[in-house]
Design a protein around this nucleic acid. Sequence first.
DNA 1: ATGGCTTCATAGTGAAGA
Length: 256
Amino acid sequence: MKLATWNVNSLKVRLPHLLDWLAANPVDAICLQETKQQDADFPQAALQTAGYYSAFSGQKTYNGVAILSRTPLSEVQYGIPNFTDEQKRVIAATINGVRVVCVYIPNGQSLDSDKYQYKLKWLAALRDWLALEIKQYPNLALLGDYNIAPEDRDVYDPAGWAGNVLVSEPERAAFQSLLQLGLRDSYRLFEQADKSYSWWDYRMMAFRRNMGLRIDHVLVSEALAERCIGCVIDKAPRKLERPSDHTPVVAEMKTD
DNA sequence: ATGGCTTCATAGTGAAGA
């Protein structure tokens, strides 16, 4: 079973890239972030034609998440239960016995911003909910754009980024608190090349110079980690014309 | 160097992303 995540930065603009990528990489399910589309505009028919069922939670202009799956999705959950949030950042569904949780974690903007406080509160609510969810669903995967680079090796210039949003100590502590639930960073279960990133700024030719961050992650529960046989970042779509600034991350699980 | 790029929005002195 292959599970993927991709912040597409506008599904409307990126739909051709997504369809091409799914044709070349027929994953079992993919989590999308920053669809930036109201539900009425979601390209359900085109994705169905490509072989994918979909569940989605969108809004105008900002945010928006979706899960696509080759098999039907059940027990679809929108948002974090008991956490009021206007912003569409969470959708979860059960796929072949695996609880798939798709998140677009807030960016935070800067450490002195209200958005940073919102990010930390949001992460605490996510952790509290997942603590319950993991008990109910031992096979759980948390995929998405975390907007957190967990360690300095996930940052192209750790000294330059020190103290900045995406790498600050409270954000990294929140990431660790997710691991403390029993989740594992599937990417780090395997040998990986140095300087591996999942996002590069559009400016300053950052991709060509590999000035990136690893902020898109696939975390897996212990039961899934035992079945996990690989995790890769696919840089190919970042090289296309008019790319998303993020690239897909794909984890593969052995089916017993 | 607070810009550099891209998106959606509106026609701004843009806003937000990361």
